[in-house]
């Protein structure tokens, strides 16, 4: 392509840009003169503020409005104000540790199921991600390949993850087929309460651990090799190297992993919903599924109650996040 032709094409493409720049130049200058530097900052931030406001802030207020109004109606104007009635219903219990003593026993079943899931899943993810990162950081053959293998499940849709594992774990699934072939007694993985819980935790760990392992791997690679060599010269045993050098230096990354895993675990829904549907019974019913069922899926839907539950869940997430960040600040200062 000749230089002249390239110039002509460039000029053609530049023309509308130049026209646009010229047409907004005068109004922008006027805006700056009227509002100063702060006004210009607001102008450039406005697109993001509008998107964030439309899809996050405004729905948050609408959600709050739903939580203090009653009825099945979806339009707020058709709903009557009920005050804290939904919150009272959710929080009224003789004994909060016994869901059957609560006014909304399903909510508290979901709360305790979620709490148990969060503790076990986050702990498992932290340990498995750490182990995976340590292995992937060591000198193993085909290291790049293994890193990719562990990350692949993260790329799958949660629904696909749920479907794949349901196919493997169902009564006549792949796993039981293999067990029968090996003369082992098949197990009702998704039908027995304890196994269903293990399956829910296991599948969600499998689906997400690659992402967290990657965060920890980045942290491990940022630890200078000299420190390990200094420890080697000092005759430090491997376990002591891990607990006294690797773990403290990896703490910021580990904290990120724990916070992110915690937030995701509290919000767990899709893969478990596809895998177990919350069952058997309500043994794998978690908070998000409860909110979905009450707000949208059940015949007697109650958007106000679902909104109240989601606000409470949001509150818990904020407290957890602030708690973790506070812990990090305290540790950085110490």
């Amino acid at each position: 392509m000749s230089f002249a032709l390239a110039n002509t094409i460039g000029a053609v493409f530049a023309a509308p840009v130049r026209w646009l720049a010229a047409s907004i130049d005068a109004p922008l200058r006027l805006w700056q003169r009227l509002t100063g530097k702060g006004g210009m900052i607001a102008f450039f931030l406005m697109p993001n503020i509008i998107v964030f406001g439309t899809f996050v802030i405004i729905p948050l207020f609408i959600n709050f409005a739903y939580s203090v109004t009653g009825g099945n109606e979806l339009f707020l104007t058709d709903r009557s104000f009920v005050g804290t009635q939904h919150f009272d219903r959710l929080l009224t219990c003789d004994n909060h540790f016994d869901p059957s003593s609560c006014r909304d026993d399903l909510f508290w079943t979901a709360v305790w199921n979620t709490a148990r899931f969060v503790v076990v899943q986050v702990t498992t993810i932290a340990i498995v991600a750490m182990g995976t990162a340590l292995i992937l950081n060591s000198k193993i053959p085909a290291r790049g390949f293994w890193r990719a293998v562990f990350f692949f499940p993260v790329l799958l849709s949660p629904v696909v993850v749920g479907l794949i594992w349901r196919w493997i774990l169902q009564r006549q699934g792949l796993l039981n087929f293999v067990m029968i072939e090996m003369d082992l007694t098949p197990v009702n993985w998704l039908i027995e309460r304890d196994w269903a819980f293990v399956a829910a935790v296991g599948v969600s760990v499998w689906a997400h651990v690659g992402f967290y392992a990657l965060i920890l791997l980045a942290g491990l690679q940022a630890i200078p090799r000299d420190l390990y060599e200094a420890a080697e010269m000092d005759g430090t045993r491997p376990a002591r190297v891990f607990f006294r050098i690797t773990l403290p230096l990896l703490w910021p990354n580990l904290l990120v992993v724990i916070v992110l895993a915690l937030i995701r675990a509290v919000q767990i829904f899709d893969e478990v919903y596809v895998l177990t549907g919350g069952g058997p019974g309500t043994s794998t019913l978690y908070l998000t599924q409860y909110i979905y069922e009450i707000g949208f899926a059940s015949i007697l839907r109650n958007p106000g109650l679902a909104s109240a539950a989601s606000l409470m869940m949001g509150g818990v997430l904020i407290v957890l996040t602030l708690g973790q960040l506070g812990l990090q600040r305290w540790r950085d200062r110490a």
Binding site: D226, L227, A230, E232, M233, I245
Partner: peptide
């Protein structure tokens, strides 16, 4: 092993444990 040679090393980066 390095630990059993009875030597001590000072590294270019100092290799002090930052925490």
């Amino acid at each position: 092993s390095a630990a059993d040679r009875g030597l001590a090393m000072v590294f270019q980066s100092y290799a002090l444990y930052p925490h």
